[in-house]
Design a protein around this nucleic acid. Sequence first.
DNA 1: ATTCTATGTGTAACCGGTTACACATAGTCG
DNA 2: CGACTATGTGTAACCGGTTACACATAGAAT
Lengths: 325, 325
Amino acid sequence: MATIRDVAKHAGVSVATVSRYLNGKGYVGADTAQAVQRAITDLNYEMNAVARSLTTKQSNLIGLILPDITNPFFPELARAVEDVALTYGYTVVLCNSDENPEKEKNYIETLQKKYVAGFIVTSSQHNRDVYMELKKPMVALDRPIDASIPCVISNNRQGLKDSTRSLIQSGCKELLFVEGPNHIQSASERKQGFEEAMAEVQHVKEHHIQANFHFDESYEKVKAYLTAHPEVDGIATSSDVAALGAIRACTELGLAIPQDIQIIGFDGIQLGEMLSPPLSTVRQDIYKLGAMAARILIKQIEKEPLESLYYEVPVELVHRGTTRS
Amino acid sequence: MATIRDVAKHAGVSVATVSRYLNGKGYVGADTAQAVQRAITDLNYEMNAVARSLTTKQSNLIGLILPDITNPFFPELARAVEDVALTYGYTVVLCNSDENPEKEKNYIETLQKKYVAGFIVTSSQHNRDVYMELKKPMVALDRPIDASIPCVISNNRQGLKDSTRSLIQSGCKELLFVEGPNHIQSASERKQGFEEAMAEVQHVKEHHIQANFHFDESYEKVKAYLTAHPEVDGIATSSDVAALGAIRACTELGLAIPQDIQIIGFDGIQLGEMLSPPLSTVRQDIYKLGAMAARILIKQIEKEPLESLYYEVPVELVHRGTTRS
DNA sequence: ATTCTATGTGTAACCGGTTACACATAGTCG
DNA sequence: CGACTATGTGTAACCGGTTACACATAGAAT
């Protein structure tokens, strides 16, 4: 593998000139530029990324920290991040935090030693300080960290408001809301949306349970609740996976969906469409969320100005098979 | 951030000694070791990964190349790889190849410039040579590349054989096999398994269609086929996602699952369990697949001997709601 | 004509590690 | 007792880039 010195020698110039040419910094005469380019082509030179990082204290690595890639919401996000990272010449490192602040912190440290260019984080929230001290470009994805850190997020409140309203409009009188973990801001915003929609009407009874974003817990809690409260005729959930749990609970209780009970999820994971019946839901533009986060991060890395610190991407109600539209 | 020279000075020794101590190579006297350790603790020294990579031409990055993290089979795989990578001190770079050999090749080159320690690849096959020339540790995951390259794979043949047999045993007389893309070896092995099972019996009619591993194509082709051949009473597919497509087709045609028609998938993606009814399938131990691949890669990186070049992980028939067991 | 500025290029130090080699000491063996 | 080996440590070159600074030239401004 040719080095910059080989190129310099071959072109009959100094390494500094080659370096300037490569980075487009400083003056390089037209003839010289040609000669250098020629040498580069001849020798099939490619720059050594590691050596470069050592002096510039900057790599083209992007750290993507998320709770668990296994949660169906995240692969699409990761995919989007990777796609735009690639087009800008960055490479993404995948980090599963398991909602564990300690793990999150370790990853951050490890990556800093590698001079990562920046972070995209769906944070476990507990450790805002870790991020505040970090003098690296970063963006918070799906979950805000601090007002000073750029954030890309769906309009959660509006989404749940829409889904709740639609359930009400299609005749539900006893509405169960399966909340997410409310210490996560996006979950509590969704709850707020639900409540706002409920506040608009009378004569609709409100039921609540809380579950994490996992299938099992949702399934069990919904089943228990429905057994005790058979009058429930509509379920809004805070995630699609929770909706899947609810569907299972209803199916096992012999309830027909959407005839006896309507169900609407939240997220718009791809698998929702593949279900039979397909899942009605509030679709977040997951890909866009990820793509925007990546673009905003890269803007920071490349010192371009940001228009805003808060990017909200709209959300869309999708009626499919589990609601009576 | 303290450097190795700071540590050396603080401990009153030379950098060489510190380096030896850090890497456990060469002789270091007991007293000296103590002094050095002391200095390290005092200064809170952490080694600079980039500088180290520059001389050793080796990083602790692992390249994970797979077709598309968005395909539900892969997140669990990625998760497993990441988990074991983490415990051994490696970091994983996520690369989506889109089954595009060109993209795959680019990633390999980019990562080589970063001195990656090795690759785990679910390859797009077309470019065996790219890998053969590569003088890096690597392992083929789910899809063999070459007999000389360690490979971790499920027993695909046996799996499809099992699922087909079980459909036959539960009374199917007209069996439709939804094949995958046969240029992918694991897909053609599955097909082989199907055929072996069919060869064991008479009086069971065989139907074939081919689809990629995606929902839409499977849905459309199955629907068309079933419309033309309403006698089909069982479907075995080459992937769970294809099974989802088949389920949708059947549902739309008014067929009851599993009463009118039984369906069995292949893969064991987590979402299969969340369906209602839950999907019968041949479960690959996806996590194990990924974890083994990672371990085998790391063994190579750390120059430990491999017991074998071919690791087959068993597969398990899981009867859930879409078959009459 | 003189000074100033913009342009163009090279020298050498530096980033933070690793390691070949030289050198020193001390115990062992014949 | 001299030669040999195992142990312990330091010097300095090296990995492959970047960049501050010095120096040179030429046209523009005064």
